[in-house]
Design a protein around this nucleic acid. Structure first.
Length: 214
DNA sequence: AACTCGGGGCA
DNA sequence: TGCCCAGAGTT
Protein backbone atom coordinates (compact mmCIF):
# COMPACT_ATOMS: atom_id res chain seq x y z
CA UNK A 1 0.00 0.00 0.00
CA UNK A 2 1.33 3.37 -0.92
CA UNK A 3 0.78 6.46 1.18
CA UNK A 4 0.65 8.52 -1.99
CA UNK A 5 -2.75 7.13 -2.86
CA UNK A 6 -4.23 7.51 0.60
CA UNK A 7 -6.20 10.58 1.43
CA UNK A 8 -5.25 12.42 4.58
CA UNK A 9 -8.50 11.28 6.16
CA UNK A 10 -7.84 7.63 5.35
CA UNK A 11 -4.34 7.90 6.72
CA UNK A 12 -5.57 9.36 9.99
CA UNK A 13 -8.25 6.70 10.23
CA UNK A 14 -5.70 3.93 9.65
CA UNK A 15 -3.31 5.40 12.21
CA UNK A 16 -6.03 5.65 14.85
CA UNK A 17 -6.75 1.94 14.47
CA UNK A 18 -3.07 1.02 14.56
CA UNK A 19 -2.33 3.05 17.66
CA UNK A 20 -5.38 1.69 19.48
CA UNK A 21 -4.31 -1.84 18.57
CA UNK A 22 -0.65 -1.40 19.43
CA UNK A 23 -1.25 0.41 22.72
CA UNK A 24 -4.36 -1.45 23.93
CA UNK A 25 -4.06 -0.67 27.62
CA UNK A 26 -5.96 2.44 28.60
CA UNK A 27 -3.45 5.23 28.56
CA UNK A 28 -3.06 6.97 31.86
CA UNK A 29 -4.27 10.52 31.58
CA UNK A 30 -4.19 13.33 34.09
CA UNK A 31 -6.93 12.93 36.68
CA UNK A 32 -9.05 16.03 37.23
CA UNK A 33 -12.59 17.05 38.15
CA UNK A 34 -12.47 20.76 37.32
CA UNK A 35 -10.64 23.10 34.92
CA UNK A 36 -8.61 24.34 37.86
CA UNK A 37 -7.46 20.83 38.75
CA UNK A 38 -6.47 20.19 35.15
CA UNK A 39 -4.53 23.46 35.06
CA UNK A 40 -2.55 22.58 38.18
CA UNK A 41 -2.00 18.97 37.09
CA UNK A 42 -0.73 20.13 33.71
CA UNK A 43 1.70 22.62 35.24
CA UNK A 44 3.00 19.74 37.35
CA UNK A 45 3.34 17.46 34.32
CA UNK A 46 6.33 19.19 32.73
CA UNK A 47 9.23 16.77 32.16
CA UNK A 48 7.40 14.02 34.01
CA UNK A 49 4.77 11.34 33.40
CA UNK A 50 1.05 11.67 34.03
CA UNK A 51 1.32 8.64 36.31
CA UNK A 52 3.70 10.51 38.62
CA UNK A 53 1.48 13.59 38.58
CA UNK A 54 -1.63 11.59 39.46
CA UNK A 55 0.12 10.14 42.52
CA UNK A 56 0.68 13.68 43.78
CA UNK A 57 -2.67 15.24 42.89
CA UNK A 58 -4.71 12.37 44.31
CA UNK A 59 -3.75 13.57 47.78
CA UNK A 60 -3.32 17.28 47.02
CA UNK A 61 -6.77 17.85 45.52
CA UNK A 62 -8.58 16.31 48.50
CA UNK A 63 -8.18 19.55 50.42
CA UNK A 64 -6.54 21.94 47.97
CA UNK A 65 -8.61 22.16 44.80
CA UNK A 66 -9.21 25.90 44.51
CA UNK A 67 -6.87 28.89 44.17
CA UNK A 68 -7.85 30.17 47.63
CA UNK A 69 -7.23 26.78 49.25
CA UNK A 70 -3.77 26.35 47.71
CA UNK A 71 -2.80 29.88 48.71
CA UNK A 72 -3.21 28.86 52.34
CA UNK A 73 -0.05 26.80 51.86
CA UNK A 74 3.41 28.30 52.14
CA UNK A 75 5.79 27.52 49.30
CA UNK A 76 7.69 25.02 51.44
CA UNK A 77 4.45 23.33 52.48
CA UNK A 78 3.37 23.02 48.88
CA UNK A 79 6.80 21.75 47.87
CA UNK A 80 6.55 19.04 50.50
CA UNK A 81 3.30 17.81 48.93
CA UNK A 82 4.69 17.61 45.40
CA UNK A 83 8.36 16.75 45.95
CA UNK A 84 8.03 13.23 44.64
CA UNK A 85 8.13 14.63 41.12
CA UNK A 86 10.91 16.58 39.45
CA UNK A 87 11.29 20.35 39.25
CA UNK A 88 9.03 20.69 42.32
CA UNK A 89 10.64 23.89 43.57
CA UNK A 90 9.85 25.83 40.40
CA UNK A 91 6.46 24.18 40.04
CA UNK A 92 5.41 25.16 43.56
CA UNK A 93 6.46 28.72 42.82
CA UNK A 94 4.55 28.78 39.52
CA UNK A 95 1.41 27.33 41.08
CA UNK A 96 1.29 29.82 43.95
CA UNK A 97 1.81 32.72 41.57
CA UNK A 98 -0.82 31.37 39.19
CA UNK A 99 -3.36 31.01 42.01
CA UNK A 100 -2.77 34.62 43.02
CA UNK A 101 -3.21 35.82 39.43
CA UNK A 102 -6.44 33.82 39.13
CA UNK A 103 -7.86 35.56 42.19
CA UNK A 104 -6.58 39.01 41.25
CA UNK A 105 -7.44 39.06 37.56
CA UNK A 106 -9.91 36.27 36.80
CA UNK A 107 -12.25 36.12 39.81
CA UNK A 108 -10.76 32.79 40.82
CA UNK A 109 -11.83 31.12 37.57
CA UNK A 110 -9.58 29.51 34.96
CA UNK A 111 -9.71 31.71 31.84
CA UNK A 112 -10.98 30.12 28.64
CA UNK A 113 -8.79 31.87 26.09
CA UNK A 114 -5.23 31.11 25.09
CA UNK A 115 -4.22 34.73 25.52
CA UNK A 116 -5.36 34.83 29.15
CA UNK A 117 -4.01 31.37 30.00
CA UNK A 118 -0.56 32.47 28.85
CA UNK A 119 -0.65 35.24 31.46
CA UNK A 120 -0.44 32.56 34.16
CA UNK A 121 2.85 31.42 35.65
CA UNK A 122 4.21 28.08 34.49
CA UNK A 123 1.74 28.00 31.60
CA UNK A 124 3.20 27.90 28.11
CA UNK A 125 1.66 26.96 24.77
CA UNK A 126 1.45 23.24 25.52
CA UNK A 127 -0.18 23.63 28.94
CA UNK A 128 -2.54 26.29 27.60
CA UNK A 129 -3.71 23.97 24.83
CA UNK A 130 -4.19 21.02 27.19
CA UNK A 131 -6.55 23.14 29.28
CA UNK A 132 -8.33 24.62 26.27
CA UNK A 133 -8.85 21.23 24.65
CA UNK A 134 -9.60 19.01 27.63
CA UNK A 135 -11.34 21.36 30.07
CA UNK A 136 -13.12 23.70 27.67
CA UNK A 137 -13.33 21.52 24.54
CA UNK A 138 -11.85 24.15 22.28
CA UNK A 139 -9.98 23.48 19.06
CA UNK A 140 -6.38 23.51 20.26
CA UNK A 141 -4.22 20.40 19.99
CA UNK A 142 -1.35 20.31 22.53
CA UNK A 143 2.05 19.90 20.87
CA UNK A 144 5.15 18.88 22.80
CA UNK A 145 8.49 17.67 21.48
CA UNK A 146 7.34 14.10 20.90
CA UNK A 147 4.09 15.11 19.24
CA UNK A 148 5.94 17.56 17.02
CA UNK A 149 8.52 15.03 15.86
CA UNK A 150 6.33 11.93 15.47
CA UNK A 151 3.45 13.68 13.70
CA UNK A 152 5.90 15.28 11.27
CA UNK A 153 7.55 11.93 10.48
CA UNK A 154 4.22 10.23 9.95
CA UNK A 155 3.16 13.00 7.59
CA UNK A 156 0.31 14.35 9.72
CA UNK A 157 2.05 17.71 9.99
CA UNK A 158 4.62 19.71 8.06
CA UNK A 159 7.12 19.88 10.91
CA UNK A 160 7.68 23.52 10.07
CA UNK A 161 7.15 24.87 13.57
CA UNK A 162 5.02 24.28 16.64
CA UNK A 163 2.36 26.85 15.77
CA UNK A 164 1.83 25.33 12.34
CA UNK A 165 1.76 21.82 13.82
CA UNK A 166 -0.88 22.83 16.37
CA UNK A 167 -3.03 24.15 13.57
CA UNK A 168 -2.53 21.14 11.30
CA UNK A 169 -3.28 18.54 13.97
CA UNK A 170 -6.28 20.49 15.20
CA UNK A 171 -7.75 20.36 11.70
CA UNK A 172 -6.99 16.77 10.83
CA UNK A 173 -7.63 14.77 14.02
CA UNK A 174 -11.16 13.80 15.10
CA UNK A 175 -12.02 15.78 18.20
CA UNK A 176 -12.97 12.78 20.33
CA UNK A 177 -9.56 11.10 20.00
CA UNK A 178 -7.37 13.97 21.11
CA UNK A 179 -6.51 12.80 24.61
CA UNK A 180 -5.75 9.25 23.47
CA UNK A 181 -3.86 10.32 20.38
CA UNK A 182 -1.72 12.73 22.36
CA UNK A 183 -0.71 9.91 24.71
CA UNK A 184 -0.10 7.51 21.86
CA UNK A 185 2.22 9.94 20.09
CA UNK A 186 4.18 10.56 23.29
CA UNK A 187 4.48 6.89 24.17
CA UNK A 188 5.41 6.00 20.60
CA UNK A 189 7.94 8.82 20.45
CA UNK A 190 9.60 7.65 23.62
CA UNK A 191 9.70 3.93 22.83
CA UNK A 192 9.93 3.60 19.04
CA UNK A 193 9.95 6.86 17.11
CA UNK A 194 12.85 8.26 19.11
CA UNK A 195 14.57 11.53 18.26
CA UNK A 196 17.82 9.69 17.57
CA UNK A 197 17.95 6.26 15.97
CA UNK A 198 14.22 5.62 15.59
CA UNK A 199 13.38 1.91 15.69
CA UNK A 200 11.56 1.82 12.36
CA UNK A 201 11.99 -1.96 12.02
CA UNK A 202 9.70 -2.45 15.00
CA UNK A 203 7.23 0.29 14.10
CA UNK A 204 3.71 -0.82 13.23
CA UNK A 205 3.11 2.36 11.25
CA UNK A 206 6.21 2.34 9.03
CA UNK A 207 4.22 1.30 5.95
CA UNK A 208 2.37 4.61 5.97
CA UNK A 209 5.14 6.75 7.43
CA UNK A 210 6.67 9.47 5.27
CA UNK A 211 9.94 9.41 7.22
CA UNK A 212 10.42 5.65 6.83
CA UNK A 213 9.64 5.70 3.13
CA UNK A 214 12.01 8.59 2.47
C1' DA B 1 20.02 30.26 22.02
C1' DA B 2 21.70 28.19 26.01
C1' DC B 3 20.97 27.23 30.70
C1' DT B 4 18.31 25.64 34.85
C1' DC B 5 15.37 22.86 37.61
C1' DG B 6 15.03 17.30 39.61
C1' DG B 7 13.09 12.66 40.40
C1' DG B 8 12.17 8.82 37.40
C1' DG B 9 13.07 5.86 33.57
C1' DC B 10 16.11 3.24 31.23
C1' DA B 11 20.64 1.49 29.23
C1' DT C 1 25.61 4.68 37.83
C1' DG C 2 25.21 7.98 34.64
C1' DC C 3 22.49 10.08 30.95
C1' DC C 4 18.26 12.02 29.28
C1' DC C 5 13.80 14.17 29.68
C1' DA C 6 6.07 13.66 28.76
C1' DG C 7 8.33 22.43 29.45
C1' DA C 8 8.66 26.93 30.93
C1' DG C 9 11.18 30.90 32.75
C1' DT C 10 15.39 33.50 32.91
C1' DT C 11 19.56 35.72 31.16
Amino acid sequence: MSTKKMSKEDKVSALLKLFAEYYPNPKTSLNFKTPFELLIATILSAQTTDIQVNKVTAELFKKYNTPAAILKLSQSELEEKINSIGLYHNKAKYILKTCQILLDQFEGQVPETRKDLLKLSGVGRKTANVVLANAFFKAAFPVDTHVFRVSARLGLSSGKNVSKTEQELTEILPRDCWIDFHHWLIEHGRAICKAQNPDCENCFASYLCDYFQA
